[in-house]
């Protein structure tokens, strides 16, 4: 059997409104230079929580720890009231987390249909649920239904982005981790994703967004965290934060230029 026998609870019903908490996480590859050094943050349902920071601040590592791709050295991760610090990605998916990595993450030589099926890998033993999810997906994105026999690599950039989003949403996640949506992606495609993020927030989902594109991210944010050198720096609601944006970012620019 592939996969662990991690508890697979019903993501769609049990955890419709779960907050995601990262508590004093230390992570990295060498004790003398942790990438994250006691980082704490919290993402609430119906909110877009944004994590900002200069290059190398550890933003992407935050998401990787939350999703179980990097094991933390110390600290804990909770979703709702459940400690998930040691769970593999598969179990986190089952608890309603989903992760959209940087860049283009479709499998180019798999068909659209197969790509979507991979999005339902955690339900591979539950045919009824898979069929229902696919039906829902095709109802929402009829384009994909027409394209389903095509190889994902042959789609246009916009269609690939749509496929990624559709695949992300297939298991009906409640907590969305989104990594650098504007890196390596054409600007018009980035906008598609921001629109989706706002929609997900309005549907009550918990969204945690890591972004280089400070202004765009802050414009859809409800709450903002900033990191510097793997530590929490500032955080606050968007309104409070917007005024200090220029000052903070200016500082990072100097950090980037003078490492």
């Amino acid at each position: 059997m592939i996969g662990s026998s991690a508890p697979i609870s019903d993501a769609a019903t049990n955890n419709t409104r779960s907050s995601l908490v990262m508590d004093k996480i230390t992570a990295g590859y060498h004790a003398d230079q942790w990438v994250l050094n006691g980082v704490s943050l919290r993402a609430e349902p119906e909110r877009v929580t944004v994590v900002l920071g200069p290059n190398g601040a550890g933003k992407s590592t935050v998401l990787k720890v939350l999703y179980g791709l990097v094991a933390p050295h110390a600290g804990s991760v909770r979703v709702g009231d459940q400690d998930i610090t040691r769970l593999p990605p598969e179990a986190r998916l089952a608890l309603g987390l989903a992760y959209l990595p940087q860049g283009h993450s479709v499998f180019p030589s798999l068909t659209v249909q197969e790509n979507l099926e991979m999005g339902l890998w955690i339900y591979r033993h539950d045919r009824a649920r898979r069929e229902e999810a696919l039906e829902r997906c095709f109802a929402e994105y009829p384009v994909l239904k027409d394209l389903r026999a095509k190889l994902a690599g042959s789609l246009s950039g916009g269609q690939q982005r749509l496929l990624e989003v559709a695949r992300l949403m297939l298991p009906n996640p409640t907590v969305l981790l989104i990594d650098e949506p504007s890196v390596g992606v054409a600007p018009n495609l980035v906008d598609i994703l921001y629109e989706h993020i706002v929609r997900w927030r309005n549907q009550g989902k918990t969204v945690l967004l890591v972004d280089q594109n400070v202004e765009a991210a802050v414009s859809i944010a409800d709450y903002v965290y900033t990191l510097e050198s793997g530590r929490n720096r500032l955080d606050g609601p968007r309104d409070e934060f917007e005024g200090r944006l220029r000052e903070v970012v200016g500082q990072w620019l100097r950090l980037d230029v003078l490492p």
Binding site: I2, L69, E90, P101, F107, E114, M118, W121, I122
Partner: peptide
């Protein structure tokens, strides 16, 4: 087969397959 598809997907990107829950 589902497993076969997962093998092909992992061959293209180990990371992306892991993200979708493939061990």
């Amino acid at each position: 087969t589902y497993l076969g598809k997962a093998i092909r997907a992992s061959a293209q990107s180990d990371l992306y397959a892991r993200i979708l829950g493939v061990n």
